[in-house]
Structures are given as C-alpha cells and as structure tokens.
C-alpha cells in the first residue's frame, strides 16, 4: 500500500462546499482534503450537518456553492450514479438495504455498473450472459465470504440481525469497487464488544480493499482509536481539523460537545 506521503495529489479535495435549504444554511464552506489511503473521521454534535456533507459527496444533494474534486475531476452537478461509478461508495445512517432481496442479490446490484453485456443478449439470455452471470455470482459469493457473510447469502436482508445488516451494507458498498468509502455512523446501535470488532474490520477493510475511508461517528473512542485525521463540524461550520490528539484537547471542540468546561473522551 502506498503511504499517504507518496501521493502528491489528494484523492478527494473538497473546496468551500455550502448548501442552504430555503433560508437555512446547513453547511458553510466545508473544506477537506484527503490523501489516498487515509482513514479520516468527521465528527460533530447531532444536527451539525455531517450527513448533509455525505449527501453532497454522493450527489444526492446539490451544493449551492463549492467544488468536489475527486481524483482531480469536479463532480458537482453530476447525478448520484456517476459518483458511484467514479469510485465513491457509501453506507447510510439508518440502513438502506434492499430489504426484500437476499444478501447475495444486494451485492449483485452493487456490481451493476461493472456488468457490460447489452440489452438484446440479456433478452435472449445468450451464452455470454449466462457466463457473466456465473462470474458475478462467484465474485459476490467471494466478497460475502471475505466479510464473513457467506452463511447469510440467501437470507432476505430484512430478516438479518441488525449487526449483520450493517456489515452487509458495508459489503454492498465495497462491491461497487470504490476508491473512497463513506461510512455514516457504522457503530450506531452496537454494543461495546461489537464496536471493538468493527474497529478492527474498518482498518482491515482499508488495507484489504485499498480504499480511502471517511467516517461519521458519534462513538468518540472508535474515532480516536482508528482515524489518523479528524474534522469537527458544528452548525455546518468546520470548527477544528487535525490529528486525534489535538482534536481531543481543542477547547472549541470541547465546548461544542459539552458546553464550557467539559472534557471529551
């Protein structure tokens, strides 16, 4: 794996991103630069605008101002699926799996942009389609196996236990072959033991799949433990940015979370 220092250009360079809903400025001048292979955290109190940032980074909301440079290309104005095809994948705060489909089918849908056969062969189910489908099935099963999800391959997503659903959502995001993975509160609703496992999984995923990861998390211990770099958002404005040690002791951050005189983690 390349170390961050070796890459001259950041994989993601967000400049002055702002969005307003009606008169409400949800995010103002959000700026972030991620070197390739980074594992960064985006934290902040509830309603700070973190998920809104993710929604802009995946084309779901159109920013009113600013640029999203991903591998040198400005993606602002493109539809959501273009963000994915170019290598940005995400999970959702309140899991959005395809509930009535099996775990395997969930993964297969994420392979969609990588499948290239045409409409007419699909109608006739030509030999090449059958062959491609067999390969897709295999790739997806292998991916499920890597993430210890193989036993659930044929279970409907809605019937899976909560923790497994979270893992499946990460697997589905990975199936799009992303360069940048956005995780929206992956530890939400997990017990301490599960959070420990999750921390290991995230660092492992970053290495195994060679992805840059940006995660939103409320679980401060998790963020401090695994992220090399942290941005703190409050009321749509970045109030601090830096290494985890500096963030922990930044008075502005402490104030945002606990009011004056508090202490973080």
């Amino acid at each position: 794996m390349t170390t961050p220092q070796e890459t001259s250009r950041p994989i993601l360079d967000v400049r002055n991103l702002s969005i307003a809903f009606g008169g409400l400025k949800a995010v103002t001048n959000f700026t972030l630069s991620l070197p390739e292979g980074e594992l960064a955290g985006l934290i902040g109190p509830n309603g700070a605008g973190k998920t809104t940032v993710f929604n802009m980074l995946t084309g779901i909301y159109a920013p009113t101002e600013g640029e999203i440079l991903f591998r040198g290309e400005n993606l602002v104005g493109k539809p959501t699926h273009d963000y994915t095809i170019r290598g940005i994948a995400r999970t959702f705060q309140n899991i959005r799996l395809f509930k009535n489909l099996s775990a395997l089918d969930n993964i297969k849908i994420a392979r969609h942009p990588r499948i290239t056969y045409g409409l007419v062969p699909a109608f006739l189910r030509s030999r090449s389609v059958t062959e491609t489908e067999r390969q897709v099935e295999e790739e997806c099963l292998v991916l499920l196996e890597k993430l210890n999800l193989l036993p659930f391959a044929d279970t409907l997503a809605t019937n899976l236990p909560y923790g497994i659903q979270r893992r499946l959502e990460i697997a589905r995001a990975l199936a799009t072959s992303p360069k940048l993975l956005l995780l929206d509160e992956p530890a939400a609703g997990m017990n301490p033991q599960e959070v420990d496992t999750l921390a290991d999984s995230i660092t492992w995923i970053r290495k195994e799949f060679q992805v840059t990861i940006l995660l939103i998390e409320h679980h401060m211990q998790l963020v401090m433990e695994i992220c090399n770099r942290i941005s703190v958002l409050n009321f749509g404005v970045t109030i601090a940015e830096g290494q985890s040690e500096d963030i922990k002791n930044d008075p502005k951050v402490i104030e945002a979370y606990l009011g004056k005189g508090g202490k973080v983690a």
Partner: peptide, 8 residues
Amino acid sequence: LAAGTMGV
C-alpha cells in the same frame, strides 16, 4: 436512493 448510490 440507495439504488443510485449503487451506481444504478
């Protein structure tokens, strides 16, 4: 929405 983020 999720379909869009899967590249569909």
